[in-house]
């Protein structure tokens, strides 16, 4: 089945019915996912500056409300609206699969994430052209495929190929029939700009570099220990839990956190388990490229290149991969 690109806004109108529809577009000069305002979404060009993870894993999420005083009460906050995420690319779709593995599949189910995820429909679109720092193909992805999406709009040219990958997607597609026609769509031609030497073998060998202090000093020395890489990363999922009270009422919330921050591993007694930038950035790289693989069978990096685009010190995870590969294969 295929869909004429000029009919896209009609499909968006369908998707927006009784649901919050998120599409890529500009908000105050920053490309990110925003509520659809009837305008044509910005599907072309570089990917969004901010990843779509905020839609499923909000920067700040209220978990429960409490009252103190003569009696103490705690009540869970359930906030999971019906949503559609439209126009995410192969890399970002895979980042959601990473988060699914963390929050739903492995160990405990995280109710907050699971509820939002269950109420979200994801329509992914073929990558229109790689950004300057993209390398999803090196991470095993295909810019013209998103098997994890409910619906995938593939290919280039004036049509999208339309495929439903899930039951939810199939149900949705039934509403689209009047806009769908038979016919083939040529494979999308977008390819990555970078091709770092990532491989399953490297992922296994990386932890062997753990004690190579000189290697890590060189790799991590320019790092300023800000949270930019973590916050623009579509897969970074660490969070902090805190409370906010007014009088004897308040809410407990969780919010994004970054393993690069100095207080991340600060214990109440003052001890810090990773006090230096070398330890912190090493942990970040190894978590992305090795540790996560050990637990989840995939890397926690999707090759979107956002951290490379935005790192104030011009650190570059693709360059790191090549450097590590060189040392590991020596």
């Amino acid at each position: 089945m295929r869909l004429k690109k000029e009919d896209l806004n009609k499909i968006l109108a369908l998707l927006a019915k009784n649901r919050e529809l998120f599409v890529p577009g500009q908000v105050r000069g920053i490309k990110q996912f925003k509520l659809w305002d009837g305008e044509t979404p910005e599907l072309d060009g570089e990917n969004t500056v901010l990843p779509p993870k905020d839609i499923l894993f909000p920067k700040t999420e209220k978990m429960y409300a409490y009252k103190t005083g003569t009696e103490t009460e705690i009540s869970e906050i359930v906030d999971a609206p019906e949503r559609v995420i439209f126009g995410i690319r192969a890399c970002d779709m895979h980042s959601i699969e990473c988060m699914d593995s963390v929050f739903i599949r492995e160990g405990y189910e995280d109710s907050f994430y699971a509820r939002r995820r269950a109420k979200s429909l994801i329509v992914a679109v073929a990558c229109p052209g790689a950004g300057v720092n993209c390398f999803c193909e090196s991470m095993g992805l295909d810019p013209d495929a998103a098997p994890g999406a409910d619906i995938f709009l593939s290919g280039g040219g004036e049509f999208y190929g339309v495929t439903a990958n899930t039951e939810k997607g199939e149900t949705e597609l039934k509403k689209w029939t009047q806009y769908l026609t038979d016919g083939d769509v040529p494979k999308g031609e977008a390819h990555c700009s970078l091709a770092p030497a990532m491989s399953p073998e490297l992922s296994e060998k990386l932890t062997g570099l753990f004690d190579d202090d000189e290697f890590w000093q060189e790799v991590t020395e320019p790092c300023l220990q800000c949270g930019t890489c973590s916050f623009v990363c579509p897969t970074c999922y660490c969070f902090d839990i805190n409370q906010s009270s007014v009088g004897d009422e308040g809410v407990a919330f969780r919010c994004w956190d970054s393993c690069m921050f100095s207080d991340y591993n600060q214990n109440a007694g003052g001890h810090n388990t990773r006090p230096t930038k070398k330890q912190r950035l090493r942990n970040r790289y190894l978590h992305k490229l090795a540790y996560f693989n050990e637990r989840h069978g995939m890397e926690l990096c999707v090759g979107c290149g956002r951290c490379i685009n935005k790192c104030p010190a011009h650190l570059d995870i693709a360059e790191f991969i090549d450097k590590a590969a060189e040392v590991c294969h020596d």
Binding site: L224, C226, G227, F231, S258
Partner: peptide
């Protein structure tokens, strides 16, 4: 997004 890059630089 309070990444603190401005502070850290």
């Amino acid at each position: 997004i309070r990444c603190y890059a401005c502070r850290n630089v």
